[in-house]
Structures are given as C-alpha cells and as structure tokens.
C-alpha cells in the first residue's frame, strides 16, 4: 500500500480540473431541481395528514387478502398497495386519518384469519403538526449552517466560512434531490439524517482546511500557481484519511440498510447519499470554491491602486 502524496498530486491536479467538478455538481443539482419542481418529494405520513399502518402478520399471507379485509372496513378510503416486507410484515398508507376503532376491526379480522400473533403499528399525523415539523427542521438546518459558518469563519477565515456553507448547502440538497428522483419516502428520520450529514460533511471539510492552513505556514502561496499547488498537495495529503473515514461510516450505514429494520432504512439511505456527496464536496467543491474566491481576492488586490504615501 505504497502512498506518497506528492506523486499523486503530480499525477492528477484536482485544483486545475475544478471546473469539471463544478459542472458535475451543477448537472446533478439541476436534475434534482427539475425533479423537485415536477415530481416534488414523496412525503411520508409524518408530513401529510394520513395514517401509515404497519402489520405484523406472523405467517405466510397474500397481500391481496389483507387488502380485501381493509377494503371491507374502509370501502371509500384510498390506500397504497399493501407491501410485504421483512419477516411476514406489511405496510400500507391511507390518504386520510383512520380512527382507531376501524383499525381495531381490521386487526381483529386479520387475527381471525391468521391468528392472535397479528399486531399493528400505526402512525397518524395532523397536517398542521406536520407542516410545523417541516418548518422547524428547515429553521434548524439554517441555524446549524449559520452557527457552523460563524465558527469556521472565526477559526479560519471568512472565505473558508463561505466555502463551507456552499459545500454544506450542496450536501443538504443532493440527498433531497436524489430522494425526489428515486421517489423514496421522506419521513422525520430523513431530517435527522440531513442534519447528521451537515455535521459530518463539515467535519470532513474542516480536516482539509486544517491541512491547507498548516501548509500555508511553510509553503509559499503568493501566486495563483503556488496557491493551486498548495491546495492540490493538501488534498492529496488528506486523501487517504478522507477515503478511509467515509468508508468506515459507509460500512455501518450500509449494514443498517441491508440488515437493519425497515423503520430506519430510509434514514441510512439518506445518510449514504449524504456521506458520498459530503466527502465529494469537501474535496472537489469546498476547497475549490475557496481557491476560486481566494484567487479573485488576489487579482483584485493586484489591480487595486497602490495606497498613496503621505
């Protein structure tokens, strides 16, 4: 496992190719935006009025039979196809709130057909509360961005703060866009995942800026070329760490997706999208945005009139 950062840095200059990475992200973001505007998000029952019903049947069953029982009790209500999952379990979602006594009747009929081990799990949310939850989550994300932006601006430099916030918004939007594109259900744990991604992606970004700051103490960075070389080297010096760390977290998140319970599967999926886009953005967006901003600042200074001497 031979690894020497300068060799890799010479082989591929990330900073010189940054326009390509900007373009890649732009394409994904535009696609995501289009999908958001046309398809919107597949909001879970957390976000709209309705009832989600999880059933544990406990033995072999036909989805159609379960649907027939539900239809018998709720002839006028629309519900999604009964979807079996896991260990003799199934779920469906009603587009309106179902009173508990109706659900009790359904469960009783199911118990009569399949036995007393039948249990159910229902979630019902009032739309007012759901809207409030969404608003609160949005505010929380914005506040987190502001707080972290300020911290980074103080610890490093205000241009780093801007670069971090750009990368952060990028990482928040990519999982949302992908969930919209793939029609995955967005529930409350999705927000928890997004907020984890916020912390995690910044963690990643900061490790890189930390190295850039350290290198700036020993390497020259007066010209655009020097600066680009410095950032490129810093990126390659931290590359192994970036890749290894994201791999370990990805492994746990993948384990949850493949083996974990249905309830947090979407959470882990959001986490995976966010982790990948987070480590991508730290290397290929955050540091590059900073280089672009820094170079603009350098050019401005160069052409600015010399301050007159008294």
């Amino acid at each position: 496992m031979s690894y020497r950062a300068p060799e890799y840095a010479a082989r591929f200059n990330i900073v010189k190719n940054r326009k390509k990475f900007y373009l890649t992200s732009l394409i994904i973001l535009v696609l995501g935006l289009l999908s958001m505007l046309t398809l919107g998000l597949n909001l879970g029952v957390d976000f709209k009025a309705g009832t989600r019903l999880d059933l544990y049947i406990g033995k072999e069953f036909e989805a159609a039979d379960v649907e027939a029982i539900i239809k018998k009790h709720l002839p006028d209500t629309n519900f999604t196809a009964v979807t079996p999952y896991g260990n003799f379990q199934a779920y469906t979602r009603f587009d309106q709130t179902i009173p508990a006594d109706k659900l009790n009747e359904i469960q009783q009929d199911l118990a009569a057909k399949y036995g007393d081990q039948v249990t159910r799990q229902e979630s019902t949310v009032d739309p007012i509360i759901a809207q409030e939850l969404m608003r609160k989550a949005g505010i929380a994300i914005l506040l987190a961005a502001v707080g972290i932006g300020i911290y980074v601006a103080v610890r490093f430099q205000y241009l780093v703060g801007i670069a971090c916030v750009v990368a952060l918004l990028h990482d928040v939007f990519i999982p949302i866009a992908l969930f919209s594109l793939f029609r995955l259900e967005v529930d409350l744990t999705f927000i928890a995942a997004i907020l984890t991604i916020v912390g995690y992606s910044l963690n990643d970004t900061i490790v890189i800026f930390d190295r850039i700051r350290e290198n700036m103490r020993t390497m020259k960075h007066k010209t655009v070329e020097d600066l680009e070389h410095l950032v490129n080297l810093s990126l390659w010096q931290t590359m192994r760490r970036s890749v290894f760390t994201v791999l370990t977290v990805l492994v746990t998140a993948l384990a949850i997706v493949l083996l974990g319970s249905e309830g947090i599967r979407n959470f882990s999926l959001a986490l995976i999208f966010g982790l990948v886009s987070g480590s991508y953005s730290s290397i290929f967006i955050a540091a590059q945005v900073w280089v672009s901003l820094k170079e603009r600042e350098m050019k401005k200074k160069r052409f600015a009139p010399e301050p007159k001497k008294e």
Partner: peptide, 10 residues
C-alpha cells in the same frame, strides 16, 4: 454545534 442545534430545535 450541529447536534446542539438539533437538540434545541428538534
């Protein structure tokens, strides 16, 4: 910082 914000507003 992210977690504290989450806890406060979540």
């Amino acid at each position: 910082i992210a977690a504290a914000v989450l806890f406060y507003f979540g």
